[in-house]
Design a binder for these strands. Structure first.
Length: 494
RNA sequence: GCUUCCGUAGCUCAGUCGGUAGAGCAGCGGAUUCUUAAUCCGCGGGUCGAAGGUUCAAGUCCUUCCGGGAGUACCA
């Protein structure tokens, strides 16, 4: 517990206790938000207010000292004068930078014109045992910023704002769907079978039922059961889990929006996506759709471009037929892609990703995906090899995925069976019989949508890493015994 | 997983050719009634990520390991 704690701070804590001051009182006067005090400040000169927050940057002049107090809404200078603070003055040095305090005082200006609360009463709210990071540079070490986000949040300006923006984005996504009479629902995170995407799941086990379970990789199959049930318009914003690699745009747990609307097709969903972006541009970006991401400017104001999947493929791979396995394999080898043991449709899509995705600066709807890589989407009327599906790309990044939902139970069962035959780590080894049963009861034609909320937040806040929009990104655990254990063995061996 | 870079005081960072570990901030003592990265004088603070190796001598060179960043792969 004492490890790493500045001994001086502990000494001050004890000195405060000896002086009869509780360093962790149950309650203090919390006063009003600093932003509220600053609003119309000049009209409130000489009035008495109380504020509370974290203390920083003490500047001492003997009988006078200045500091700043910061709360969630803003920051205000405090002036401590000996003559106004008879009771507090003797203990002033025990209250230091990074401590949490409550201050009552008179509003005014300094000789230099700085807005200041001249303290008449100071109460310690909570003594900090660790010092704040360097006041000018803040906490720079990326690893420490993620491991100790609580420090990052108070020490680095802008971090709290970025997460406040994330909160606003999620709120406005909800407002948008709520305004369209969608119902927000919650479906199982623990699932006996996983589906709705292609990804390796995390596995776990329920003791009482003695049953293996998977953490969901998508909520899709449950939400569509609700469409069968007549809910007609539903959405869910929730965490999904994929046991895959970690990168600047991947975290093993991330937040997904999925929505489903009966009596709609994928063209209707395109309109919904454009409507959502228009809403976010208005509410989050203040009407201007321009964002800068990785030093490139994008305009998120709809309408968006549209391009057929197979047309894009043909442009970047002239003469190669997506459905001609030999031609695709030759092209893949030319691109130095892995070809061994990769099924034809997957390989053709690998070629698409290698040649087309980087060219999609967007925003652009890529539409009409091949059926073989779209097991839950409805086929085109005039070409069964292609489905009514689109993905939204911005900055070469896949932001959303949508399609006219497959509601043909027999076709769906067959596609599940095909997956079982080609089973890999990313598909369950059995058909989701209950889902097929649900479809057999009849699902209205419906359009569905999935959007990665974290990536949406990256784009809207200009963050280059997903870790900058996830409060606590997954990091490797530090084993506290890793080094000590080694030393211990070495010592006992001697 | 692979490639590459990084890890030095609580924080931000220097550390040359291998030759006695440094600065600023933070902290401690002192001065100071207008600072806002306050200033001035003095002081304390190190498992140089860990373990081995080379060497008369390792923060520095080599190997392995731990942790992290970036890129890449996986992520239909």
């Amino acid at each position: 517990m004492t490890d790493g704690i500045a001994g001086d701070r502990l000494d001050k804590l004890n000195a405060l206790r000896d002086a009869g001051i509780d360093p962790y009182p149950a309650r203090v006067a919390k006063g009003q938000p600093i932003a509220e005090v600053l609003d119309g400040f000049d009209d409130k000169i000489d009035s008495t207010v109380t504020i509370a927050g974290r203390l920083s940057q003490i500047r001492d002049f003997g009988k006078l000292r200045f500091s700043h107090l910061t709360d969630r809404t803003g920051s205000l200078q405090i002036g401590f004068e000996r003559d106004r603070l008879a009771e507090f003055w003797p203990t002033r040095k025990k209250i230091e930078s990074n401590d949490l305090i409550s201050v009552t005082g008179v509003l005014g200006h300094t000789k230099k014109g700085e807005r200041t609360i001249w303290a008449t009463e100071v109460t310690l709210a909570s003594k900090a045992l660790r010092p704040a990071p360097e006041k000018w540079h803040g906490l720079q070490d990326q690893e420490q910023r993620y491991r100790m986000r609580y420090v990052d949040l108070f020490a680095n300006p802008g971090v709290r704002e970025a997460f406040a923006t994330r909160s606003k984005i999620v709120r406005e996504v909800r407002n948008y769907f709520d305004s369209l009479d969608y119902l927000e629902v919650e479906t199982p995170i623990l699932q006996p079978l996983f589906g709705g995407a292609a990804a390796r799941p995390f596995t776990t086990h329920h003791n009482a039922l003695d049953m293996p379970l998977f953490l969901r990789i998508a909520p899709e199959l449950y939400l569509k059961r609700l469409i069968v049930g007549g809910m007609e318009r539903v959405y869910e914003i929730g965490r999904v889990f994929r046991n895959e690699g970690i990168s600047t745009r991947h975290n093993p747990e991330f937040t997904m929006l999925e929505s489903y609307e009966a009596w709609a097709d994928y063209k209707d969903i395109m309109d919904r996506v454009e409507g959502l972006f228009q809403h976010l541009v208005d509410k989050v970006l203040g009407g201007d759709g321009k964002v800068t991401f990785r030093e490139v400017e994008y305009d998120l104001k709809p309408p968006f471009q549209k391009a057929r999947y197979l047309d894009l493929f043909a442009e970047q791979n002239p003469g190669v037929d997506w459905f001609d396995h030999d031609a695709v394999t030759a092209r893949a080898k030319q691109l130095k892609l892995k070809t061994d043991g990769i099924e034809p449709a997957k390989l053709a899509n690998d070629v698409f990703e290698a040649t087309v995705e980087d060219t999609l600066s967007g925003p652009v709807f890529v539409h009409d995906y091949p059926t073989a890589i779209s097991p839950l989407a409805k086929r085109m009327v005039d070409d069964a090899r292609v489905t009514e599906r689109f993905e939204l790309f911005v900055a070469g990044m896949e932001l959303g995925n949508a399609f006219s939902e497959l509601n043909d139970a027999i076709d769906q069962e067959q596609r599940f069976k095909d997956q079982v035959v080609d089973k890999d780590d990313e598909t369950p080894g059995e058909v989701d019989v209950d889902y097929v049963t649900a479809l057999e009861f009849g699902m209205p034609p419906a359009g569905g949508l999935g959007i990665g909320i974290d990536r949406l937040c990256m784009l809207l806040t200009g963050s280059t890493s997903i870790r900058d929009v996830v409060l606590f990104p997954l990091l490797r655990r530090i084993d506290p015994n890793a080094n000590a254990g080694g030393d211990g063995e070495a010592n006992t061996a001697q």
